[in-house]
């Protein structure tokens, strides 16, 4: 394909327009702040305190991508929080249920080493498919949550945990870029200054995701707020609101 090791701007633009489009999350509030949705080829992080709606956004996005984009979704679950019943309840039309639900794959992962294995296998698998010129339709990889795998190994005297965290980050970005997949990971929060909360995993993780979003939940009104912490083309601090209910109209 490429005779030379570099790509010029026009080729990049072509690649972006052809392969790295935005995929809608199915949640209007989030699509608005992101100018369309999750971009293929990029790593998006969703941070927020417990019960702020991170898993719900993941489930909704998985359904939306499998249904409207006809793409396959891989859901790596570390907290047994994947609920196929909940996804089914969000479907508008039951007729397509089986077709849509068979496009969503779920795998439970409970330690960082398994995560490495799963991601490497996935990488290998996708490459083989591409060599055989089979059009693989995996467009979204969700990890809910990445932080629960990393927290047990981070800190302490040795820096192994830190380097594993960074390698997971690079592996995810590579997977996203080479196979045109949108990657969505969730992160929890820790207490910051003056009682506020900030995303966990510290400074070195901060520079890994392309996009960072922060979710919060108002306990009285049940209105969820989403704001941009980091993005390459959106003004920081841009925010929008949505609600979670049974039928998922946001």
């Amino acid at each position: 394909m490429h005779q030379h090791p570099w790509q010029n701007g026009m080729e990049l633009l072509e690649d972006v327009l052809k392969n790295k489009n935005c995929i809608s999350t199915g949640c209007e509030g989030i699509d608005t702040v992101l100018n369309g949705g999750l971009r293929k080829g990029q790593l998006t992080e969703l941070a927020g305190p417990s019960s702020s709606g991170k898993t719900q956004v993941c489930l909704c996005t998985a359904l939306h991508v499998a249904d409207k984009e006809m793409g396959e979704v891989m859901f790596l679950d570390t907290g047994n929080s994947f609920s196929s019943k909940r996804i089914a309840s969000m479907m508008e039309k039951e007729i397509r249920l089986e077709r849509v639900m068979t496009r969503i794959f779920h795998q439970a992962v409970f330690d960082i080493f398994t995560m490495f294995t799963v991601l490497n296998d996935l990488c290998l698998n996708l490459r083989q498919e591409e060599e055989r010129n089979r059009e693989r339709k995996l467009c979204l990889l969700i990890i809910d949550s990445i932080s629960s795998l990393i927290t047990p190994i981070l800190g302490g005297k040795n820096s192994n945990g830190w380097s594993m965290m960074v390698s997971i980050g690079f592996l995810l970005k590579k997977l996203a870029y080479e196979h045109n997949i949108a990657v969505l990971v969730t992160n929890h929060t820790v207490g910051g200054e003056r009682g506020s909360s900030k995303p966990a995993l510290g400074e070195s993780w901060k520079c890994i995701p392309h996009v960072r979003l922060f979710l919060s939940n108002d306990r009285e009104t049940y209105i969820r707020n989403v704001s941009v912490l980091k993005h390459t083309s959106v003004i920081l601090g841009r925010s929008s609101t949505f609600m979670i209910n049974d039928g998922w109209k946001i």
């Binding site: 998985a62 891989m74 859901f75 994947f82 196929s84 019943k85 996804i87 089914a88 249920l97 089986e98 639900m101 068979t102 496009r103 969503i104 794959f105 779920h106 795998q107 799963v118 296998d121 996935l122 698998n125």
Partner: peptide, 12 residues
């Protein structure tokens, strides 16, 4: 052929 993965349909 995602190793060991289960579809949401089976899980449902």
């Amino acid at each position: 052929d995602f190793f060991g993965a289960q579809t949401a349909w089976e899980m449902l």
